[in-house]
Amino acid sequence: MSDRARNPTIIDVARAAGVSKSVVSRVFTGQGSVGTRTRERVLAAAAELGYVVNATARAMVARRTYTVGVFVRDAATPFYGHVLTAMQERASHHGYRVVTATGSGRFELAEERHALETLVQLQVEGLVVCSGLLPASDVATFAARIPTVVAGRPETHADVTSVFCDEDAGGAGLADHVADLGHHRVAVIGLPPGRSLTMAPRTAAMARRLRERGVEVVEVAGGLVDEVPRLVPEIRAHPGVTAVMAPSDLHAVRLLEALAVAGVAAPGELSVTGYDGVGPLRTPLIGLTTWRQPVAEIGAHAVDAVVGLLDTDTVPPHHRSLAGELVVGRTAAPPRR
């Protein structure tokens, strides 16, 4: 016989609480009525024994899976990783489990669609899509079949529910900071919507606000983080540029590395800003000037939204825009006179 302790069962809880097995079952499945005192006695006995509800048994009784499928484009990046963690914590609060599919950040559209199809085949009850690539029309196709929420990008499709940071306000707020520092010619590394549905609007907002403030903008076509070093000669070819606004913190840090290799002092010769403000890149060791997205709130509200869609058929698609905040670091400073 194994020396390992046996996990307590529903029968053990019933015996300790002095009730029948069916009463314990009703307490944990929410099926049927149980008196308040009896419920408290059952919960206390379960806590004392360390009883954990068998999710599979619960699903069989309720004929539900109590799972939410989450697709994140690249869980290795700070933004997606922290949003995923927040969603897992919130799902647990609601009594749901999270089944995750993630790409490497280099998935093609067909691969993202296949990942969502796989999650649906696993009989998840709802979907949360965290991707800056998958078009709204594709997401709407899934939303017509299963409760679906888009998290982390400014999605306003009429048939899709979404939760996101206000990219226009973020890009403009960060641009105001750069203009307030006294920069008159600024390079903005922009991405087209076809490359990123999150970074495209924020960098467009940066450029737009800078021009409104009378700042000359040099638009630089960007791409993947690994492609950033090749942009340094192009940026340096424009005389008078004293600041560079990157589309993400990862892009900004890679740019700082490339500038250091090229012997360009930052912020002495070029100020640099990022965008996201999450994870290890927030360290004071880097001191990145950035715009912080409320990732914990995005993840939590996305799960709340999909659970709300599951609980009622009368909730119409809605869009929730959350405010971020400026993080003043040391990578952006007034230009040298």
Results as ranks from 00 to 15, higher is better:
Arg4Trp: 13
Asp12Leu: 02
Ser20Phe: 05
Arg26Asn: 10
Gly32Asp: 05
Ser33Tyr: 14
Arg37Asn: 14
Val53Tyr: 09
Arg58Leu: 07
Val61Gly: 05
Ala62Pro: 01
Ala62Met: 15
Gly69Ala: 03
Ala75Leu: 11
Ala76Glu: 14
Pro78Thr: 07
Gln88Cys: 10
Ser92Lys: 06
His93Trp: 15
Gly103Cys: 11
Gly103Leu: 08
Ser104Ile: 11
Glu112Cys: 02
Glu117Cys: 06
Gln123Thr: 13
Leu127Gly: 01
Leu127Asp: 01
Ser131Ile: 00
Gly132Val: 02
Leu133Tyr: 10
Ala136Arg: 08
Ser137His: 13
Val139Cys: 00
Ile146Leu: 13
Ile146Asp: 08
Val149Glu: 01
Val149Cys: 11
Val149Tyr: 04
Ala151Ile: 04
Ala151Glu: 03
Glu155Arg: 00
Cys165Thr: 10
Glu167Leu: 10
Ala169Pro: 06
Gly171Asp: 04
Ala172His: 09
Leu174Arg: 00
Gly182Glu: 05
Val186Pro: 05
Pro193Asp: 14
Arg202Ile: 05
Ala207Pro: 00
Arg208Thr: 15
Leu210Arg: 00
Gly214Gln: 04
Val215Gln: 01
Glu219Leu: 11
Gly223Arg: 00
Val232Cys: 06
Pro233Cys: 05
Ile235Glu: 07
Ile235His: 01
Ala237Ser: 15
Val241Trp: 03
Ala243Leu: 09
Ala246Ser: 15
Ser248His: 05
Leu255Cys: 11
Ala258Glu: 07
Ala260Phe: 10
Val261Asp: 11
Gly263Trp: 09
Gly263Ala: 12
Leu270Gly: 01
Thr283Tyr: 08
Val295Arg: 01
Ala296Tyr: 11
Ile298Pro: 05
Gly299Glu: 08
Ala300Thr: 09
Ala300Tyr: 05
Asp304Phe: 06
Ala305Leu: 09
Val306Tyr: 11
Gly308Met: 07
Leu310Pro: 01
Pro316Trp: 03
His318Ile: 07
His318Asn: 06
His318Ala: 14
Ser321Val: 01
Gly324Tyr: 03
Val328His: 07
Ala332Val: 10
Pro334Thr: 10
Arg336Glu: 15
Arg337Ile: 08
Arg337Glu: 15
